[in-house]
């Protein structure tokens, strides 16, 4: 099992290191996958729960974490009833270990930490709580941890996305969804850059450039990195390495035509030209009635309709993420 590169980088980064009281060195050697993306309703929870089922079928232990605090519903995607213990019990320190809030889903090798809770404060976890959660995650005894981050671009969401080995963005072929996905990528990207430098001048430039109408005339992140390279060669070099390492994964959901599938390729190209980020387009899921029928029955569609095209699409996506590959032209149905 590969080491969690994302985590390791982050444990070394200044912010985490300062707050690491020696607790963050658990034995977790698995992989963390996180699903995020700007817009709500694109199918993030549905996809991650079914990705979890797909992974668990290979005999690996999978832990699903519903980190969509304030909008958690993974338990329903899996057909579980309202959970008795949730992540908020851990955040509010009702229990000391994250293991105490893990529940069985009834699916072999698949367990869940639910986020469902009426306690509203939990949706706005503070910095210390977040760090405690990040540290505790390394003690989880599982091969995979799958995080459902929900919509939006809050710092919590971005930070969880960044610690993941595979950060997965779900979009549907609609203008609103794609716009929000770009905003999400942009936020994650700048947050990552900001985290690795302490140079005040460079940080200010990054903040400045996040506004497209900046006075420096820098339009794209690609130009920003070139510009910073001119000011400070070392930082410029580090940024370039970061950009190469940063490969979020893209899933197109609800595709109805070949043109919809191609939108994914267009997004990949646009991200490369605009951000300089080489996104991995890991696959698409076809629109199908069976999916919402399964959702209505509160059953994972992979179990309810294992022979449908969306189920096959999902299996292929899981495989591509594991193998770290892009979608292959020949396999497009």
């Amino acid at each position: 099992m590969a080491k969690i590169s994302g985590l390791e980088v982050n444990w070394m980064s200044s912010e985490v290191l300062n707050n690491n009281n020696g607790n963050g060195n658990g034995s977790f050697k698995g992989q963390i996958w996180a699903v995020g993306g700007g817009k709500g309703g694109t199918g993030k929870s549905l996809i991650i729960s079914n990705l979890g089922i797909c992974l668990s079928r290979t005999g690996r232990d999978v832990l699903l974490v519903d980190a969509d605090l304030g909008g958690a519903n993974l338990h329903s995607c899996l057909g579980n009833s309202f959970p008795s213990v949730t992540l908020s019990d851990f955040i509010r320190k009702k229990v000391s270990s994250i293991k105490d809030v893990t529940i069985d889903t009834g699916i072999p090798h698949l367990s869940l930490i639910s986020g469902a809770e009426d306690y509203l404060e939990v949706a706005n976890t503070n910095y210390a709580q977040k760090m405690r959660l990040l540290r505790q995650i390394t003690f989880v005894d599982s091969d995979y941890i799958l995080l459902d981050l929900g919509a939006g671009t809050t710092f919590n969401t971005l930070d969880f996305f960044l610690i993941a080995d595979s950060g997965i963005i779900v979009v549907t072929p609609e203008p609103t969804s794609i716009e929000n996905a770009y905003r999400f990528i942009k936020s994650v990207f700048y947050r990552r850059l900001k985290k690795i430098v302490r140079h005040q001048g460079v940080r200010e430039i990054i903040v400045e450039v996040m506004d497209r109408k900046n006075e420096l005339g820098i339009k794209t992140p690609v130009e920003l990195i070139n510009y910073i390279g001119l000011i400070n060669n070392d930082i410029g070099q580090r940024f370039k390495e970061e950009v190469l390492k940063f490969r979020p994964k893209l899933i197109m959901n609800n595709v109805r035509s070949r043109a919809d599938i191609n939108v994914g390729f267009s997004i990949k190209s646009t991200c490369l030209k605009y951000f300089g980020i080489n996104i991995a387009y890991v696959g698409y899921i076809e629109y199908d009635e069976s999916v919402w029928q399964a959702v209505r029955r509160r059953k994972p569609f992979l179990l309810e309709y294992p022979n449908t095209r969306p189920a096959k699409c999902l299996e292929r996506i899981t495989k591509n993420i594991i193998m770290n590959k892009d979608i292959e032209e020949e396999f497009i149905l």
Binding site: Y182, S266, S269
Partner: peptide, 25 residues
Amino acid sequence: DAYKRAKETYSGGSLATYSLFTAEE
């Protein structure tokens, strides 16, 4: 294939480009 995709992406009217690139870009 790459050419066909690029044409599709940057010829205008693509969902993927309009919010990041201007028509001139």
